[in-house]
Design a binder for these strands. Structure first.
Lengths: 336, 336
DNA sequence: ACAGCTGATTAAAACGTTTTCGATTTTTGC
DNA sequence: GCAAAAATCGAAAACGTTTTAATCAGCTGT
């Protein structure tokens, strides 16, 4: 392992000079810089990030906590997308990503682990923000950005759960649908926001919400959604379009309705949520609301890094990231 | 940031003693150890991994390279699973995971990045092992484990692509199928191995391979698989069971055959490959070969860590990880 | 009473950097 | 030609640890 000192010896100069040369310091002559850099190159010098971090008190690495006790299935795709974009953005600014995770070996808290590993900041994606360790971390003063949860002391990046249903309703209304059903998720924050968006959209389009058309399903549960869909089509006064809990659940609705002899979208229009891969691959392509998870990750990085690099101008803020309506073939234009 | 020196001062002792006390060194008296640890605890001391790594020349962190220029869709789920299990295993041994990735900012190679960040070892998951940087890394002497590719200088963890089709054939043969078709992928290493497994399985079951039943599709391409499936059912002498390229592709076969009025599995048995989430969620549940990607990740960690910790006893080896047949409902027992 | 132990502690070097500040040389202005 | 200013360089401290080797006090057995 060749180090700065070795270069200094070979160049007949001091380590201070080598360090400066490698950083193109302007208090050195052009010639020295060139000479040192050439030798460094020839000797195959690679700097040592840890020594550097120790001195500079900056590691240029940001930690990511992905705490999901339930390890929910769909989460993987969502998290992958966030991780990917977050990584790309951070790397483009010279930061790298390391996982912060509790090892059974030591009993450090998340905050301690972050400190231990000299993280410049942390991005938290969690299912459970009431975890005391997460709270400790957020309040520790270490730069933190949370995704899909708002602490008032940290910046939060939120996927917008109201705008989605609102826009979907507007879209299907524009196709001529008036009797629109909504198979929504369990009673959670997300569900509340989506319902609010649904009502908002209906109102905007001058449509009235039929309470029989509002059914509670379960997130990512195709069978619950299939049952609910069957229930809806069995109504004497039936809807022409059903917004499903999410794309995975919608698969159940498609299967159930197909088995009952309904063609999608001829006999019933179906709308999903999330825009997972399967919604694009499946035929017919799903009409759905594509969560912009890449943007979530990107925003998380951008905001965390600016928090790190400009600590004085920092005020915690909340960034809402919008998705887009994917106009697929599971919805029929009934205007024609 | 409180450090060892602060504890030493408070304890009226030397930093050497504190360091030893924190490591329960047996050259210290029980009393000193207890006293120091108590004070450290009270002062909220957290060690500094970088300083430690600098001195010990061990960082207890392992790098992971995920190089996938095509960013293929399915890859996400596969990679997530590997990453997850690899992480868990490494963490349980006190290692953490950091992403090694090329930042546009600097022009370091993967090897240099690994060195720069003091990685103890690296796990490589790549689509393209001919990349010169990957080769440089593997030959650098740094502990490396590759997944799904064999270099003779490093340990490789392989998912078995021959055993899968072989077992699937055996399974469907046990259900009474004799005329088995195989929609295979493009002409790649993986396809060659899977075809070999297919032939092997057929032979074991005393079945003959009908060349009309061998069709080239494309990985993860539902439409190609759908077309191939239609072609197969249009044959006068048609198969009773079709092995599809993979689960995603199989979705296309299901759709295509459903549209042509075929019921799965009554009129045609279908078999997938990979065992992705959708194969479990979809109804009917897919009969498929579940790749044991968790085991891949786990083995990668185990082997890398033993390579790191016992460098003398190291010999590069290849570990094959088997999957299992998921007996779903897309295959019919035609014995009955 | 003394050589030799044992057990507990610590001083100091080292890991590979960055950076401050002083020293030395060169250039500038007049 | 000389003082002042500018340019260039280097010594040394610091970042937070671990570890080797040395010190020191208190015992042992003769």
């Amino acid at each position: 392992m060749i180090k700065i000192k070795d270069i200094a010896i070979k160049c007949n100069t001091s380590i201070a000079t080598v360090s400066k040369a490698l950083h193109n310091s302007d208090e050195l002559s052009k010639e020295t810089i060139a000479r040192v850099q050439k030798v460094a190159q020839e000797m195959g010098y690679v700097p040592n990030a840890y020594a550097r971090a120790l001195k500079m008190k900056r590691s240029f690495s940001i930690g990511i906590i992905f705490y999901d006790p339930t390890a929910g299935g769909l989460k993987h795709e969502y998290f992958s997308a966030i991780l990917d974009s977050l990584k790309v953005e951070a790397e483009s600014k010279g930061y790298n990503i390391t996982f912060l995770s509790k090892s059974p070996a030591s009993s450090m808290t998340y905050y301690q682990i972050a400190k231990y590993r000299n993280m410049d900041g942390v991005i938290v994606v969690s299912e459970d923000f009431s975890n005391p360790e997460i709270i400790e971390l957020v309040n520790s003063g270490l730069p933190v950005v949370t995704i899909d949860y708002i602490f008032n002391s940290a910046t939060a990046i939120m996927s917008d759960n109201t705008e989605g249903p609102e826009r979907l309703v507007n879209y299907v209304a524009s196709l001529g649908h008036k009797n629109i059903a909504f198979i929504h998720g369990e009673n959670t924050e997300v569900t509340k926001k989506r319902l609010a968006g649904f009502y908002k959209g209906m109102q905007e389009c001058g449509l009235t919400v039929n309470n029989d058309f509002l059914i509670e399903g379960r997130f990512h549960d195709p069978r619950a959604c299939g049952r609910a869909a069957k229930q809806l089509v069995s109504l004497s006064d039936r809807p022409t379009c059903i917004l499903c809990t999410d794309d995975i659940a919608m698969l159940g609705a498609i299967t159930a309705l197909n088995q009952s002899g309904y063609d999608i979208p001829k006999d019933m229009s179906l709308v999903g949520y999330d825009g997972v891969e399967i919604s694009r691959i499946f035929r017919p392509v799903f009409t759905t609301y594509v969560q912009n998870s890449s943007e979530l990750g990107k925003q998380a990085s951008i905001n965390l890094i600016s928090r790190i690099e400009e600590p004085n101008t920092f005020i915690p803020r909340t960034v809402y990231v919008q998705g887009r309506v994917q106009e697929g073939n599971t919805t029929r234009n009934i205007n024609k």
